[in-house]
Design a protein around this nucleic acid. Sequence first.
RNA 1: GCGGGGGUGCCCGAGCUGGUCAAAGGGGACAGGCUUAGGACCUGUUGACAUAGGUCUACCAGGGUUCGAAUCCCUGCUCCCGCACCA
Length: 959
Amino acid sequence: MNRAIEKKWQDKWREVNLFQADPDNREKIFVTVAYPYPSGAMHIGHGRTYTVPDVYSRFKRMQGYNVLFPMGWHVTGAPVIGIAKRIEEKDPWTLNLYENVHKVPKDELHKLSDPEYIVEYFGGEYHNVMDDMGYSIDWRREFRTTDESYKRFIEWQLRKLKSMDLVKKGEHSVKYCPKCDNPVGDHDLLEGEGATINELTLIKFELDGKFLIPATFRPETIYGVTNLWLNPDVGYIELDNNGEVYIISEESYLNLSNQIKELKVIGEIDPNDLIGKFVVNPVTGEKHPVLPASFVDPEYGSGSVFSVPGHAPVDYVALQDLRSNEELLGKYDLRDVLDSVEIRNVVTIKKYGEFPAKDVVEKFNVKNQNDPNLENATNELYKVEHSKGVISDNIPVYGGEKVTVAREKIKYMIVDDNLGVVAYDFSEHPVICRCGSKAVVKILDDQWFLRYSEEDWKEKARRCLHNEDVIPNELRSNFEYYIGWLEDWACSRRIGLGTRLPWDRQWLIEPLTDSTIYMSYYTIAKYFKDIQLDDLGDDFFDYVFLGKSNESMVVNSNSNCFNGLVNIDKIKEEFNYWYPLDWRLSGKDLVGNHLTFHMFHHSAIFERDSWPKGMVVFGMGLLEGSKMSSSKGNVIILSDAINEYGADVVRLFLMASAEPWQDFDWREKEVKGIKRRLEWFFEFSNKIKEIKGRPINLNDVEELKLEREIDKWMISQLNLRLKDATTALEVFQTRKALQDAMFLLKKDVDHYIHRVEDRISKKDERVIYVLSTIFKIWIKILTPFTPHSCEELWEAHGGLGFISNEKWPTYDENLIDEKVVKSEEIVQNLIKDILQIKNIITKDLGKIHVYPCESWKWDVYKIAYEVSKPDIGQIIGRSIEDDLCDDRKELSLFAKKIAKEMTKTKYVGKIDEIAILNNEKDFISKEVGCEIVVHEDNSFDPENKSKQAIPYKPAIYIE
RNA sequence: GCGGGGGUGCCCGAGCUGGUCAAAGGGGACAGGCUUAGGACCUGUUGACAUAGGUCUACCAGGGUUCGAAUCCCUGCUCCCGCACCA
């Protein structure tokens, strides 16, 4: 198999528009997979994602369905903006990534400084690679999410949601670069990737009419404050906030000023002047001293910290440090002040003492503020207090409540009573934008939100989910959880490519929001080039998708088709034909957003009969056991894999190594193994031809009646494998389907060929018939997986037309014969047993005598089977009733034996062992290397072995 | 923390509506056949013991239900994934 042959078939399919799907009178299936965001080259992980729907589509097409498998390009969003900028700036890391990992030619590379060109370039690249993979896509429906007609569609959707009161305005915090004056995503960061935004409470402690506003995660600890900490080595400033004066560190100003409006800097202040003074706790009214501490991070919060030594290891240790620091104590004259500091308890936790901070500091053996163990101690205590802590009884109002509950209540109390404000900061510092300056948390206050928190909407989404098949079904509870958990979703953005919010054009529509119901767009996408943009108003979409008619509506054509007018009813019919969507395929990482949104939006906008019917969720890709990642270079580009192995091998491997929802692991050794497996299949066809001595004519395999058990066995296995593979494919189990249709069937065929070697050399007609039948069916089962190879073989062996158009073979349940399978098992087990005995005994061997099981034992076995559990008493009782054996002693011995045996063997009824043994005598003899004598009775039985025979297990006597 | 899913033989992985499970299949290793040789291909072995087809120990650990458990129940240990405004 080489690329040229694959290309040949791809061209032939294209020539006859094989995969273009239009409505007709067949039953339809509509499959979509998440359209790619083409910001880089396609790798083998993407290869798996898009091969699954292709295999399924091809399978269903062969079953006679009219299958639509379309593709589009999701190019809205921000990442390419950042990439383009970095290319523009000649950022070496980015250039290297695009040149060496994504394999962009040198003369194209610089053009990627235009974000539109990036998506155009890689969109084209994706399209080509998808063709190279042989995907059966209806390309007439290809589109980009920046197409004008798509934008009209999105605007319609958003207006629709707004009219249903599902969109509202609100505020929202984002990572933001003040210098670039733009929100930044993780892709735009030089440092601090993965930092999250945490909510803090700034609490106002009065000091001479001004306020220190230390930040905390744990507002409930306000009741345990003993002092405040300032860092004497950093600069502090005074701010005016609507008449109130705040004292914060210089370095925290940048962040806070992006959150609290109208902050004005009044002047600088020396922290040394504040140390030793007293502040007022706004909640308890107590006075606390301001003390110096080096651990205070001027960048975090507001650059001051309130100290809760009973529950914060850092505060506990800092207090200890200060007590023993004569220099500092002297400098600020703090000795008396410190003596008055008494540690407080706020939270009670089992297994901890009054001051849990003290316990963990001792447990981790923390020496001072700079001890690295301090972080571990803090983490442990915060975790335990959060999960198991209860507010101590001596605390007013909140005593006895769980920490998690009290924390929220206290936060609201502080904010409502104007004792503090909520602010945000990063979970880690520093966070640096690509431009080199520090990023901050900014509050955007005119954001638009989708109201996923609306209970009515959630309920609709739940009903939508309830109607869907979820593969794998284990994820269903995940979806239920996400529907319940989703809050309002910020659906507007400042930067990126995309559609503008129709009623507030300063905003772009967020790229997950524009990808929720676009599957409906595919159904009619092929018409848009013929429709004037001005006609794509709300009434167009209302009519086509929802059936709402508007008499004044006119749809004008751009071209001459439909006599200058587009037949809108035809468009509407096409939508009605393909919808609802049968299967939606998407990645595991999109369960909590895209796939869930997909249900929200479908249920809000469409009538119930247009709600989606099924979802398949994909796993991730590994490369030789470790996670694949383009940005780390740990990736194999799909086109490289195709060039090296051929598309069919890549397809086969991706489908065979794991089920779609599992993580697959690209291991070169195993890929090569798969390649040999496919080559073996080609050899197999040649072998048949060779045995036959003339070409196979796949269109005309003459049917013969089979008599030999082994031939029937082979046909039985073939039907079994076909059945299992078909069943598996119905539910997207590509791996299982290939296990059955490729590996197990191959094993069966190997076995069969081995078993009939002597007949092959005699060119036995029936063997040729069996082999031809296998090939005829097998090639069709493999067609969805390796379409190019199968077309080639089909053509080479007399097939007419495309095998892609052939009917999927149907299995014959009657040909799957348990008795035939059992017969073969008897032969194989007999050989195994003889070899085992030979292995154990050392004497020289003569002839081997075999004795089939006596008739009465079969009857007892049948009774045991009917009793269905190893109840020896009942088995013997019923056997005596039926008068099966005169020798009671032997009967009971056998009953015991069979009671045990029946749990190890499957009962399929009585089998004519004599006939089988006589038939296969020569084969057995050849396998064990001794002469075999088959006895019909025990007239020759020197060691009385014949008695040992049990059903399916003839007795053996070795001379 | 919240939510979800796991822990199987040298490795990957199936099985998990209880009995046909010493446990599919692949990879690796070993032996034999074929071959000038290697590769490929085919056959066999790959828990332990065993001079008659057997026995014992095994599916994270511990306990339970059952005539019978990798499979069901409880407990513990442990691993992975998601937790958002990002595609």
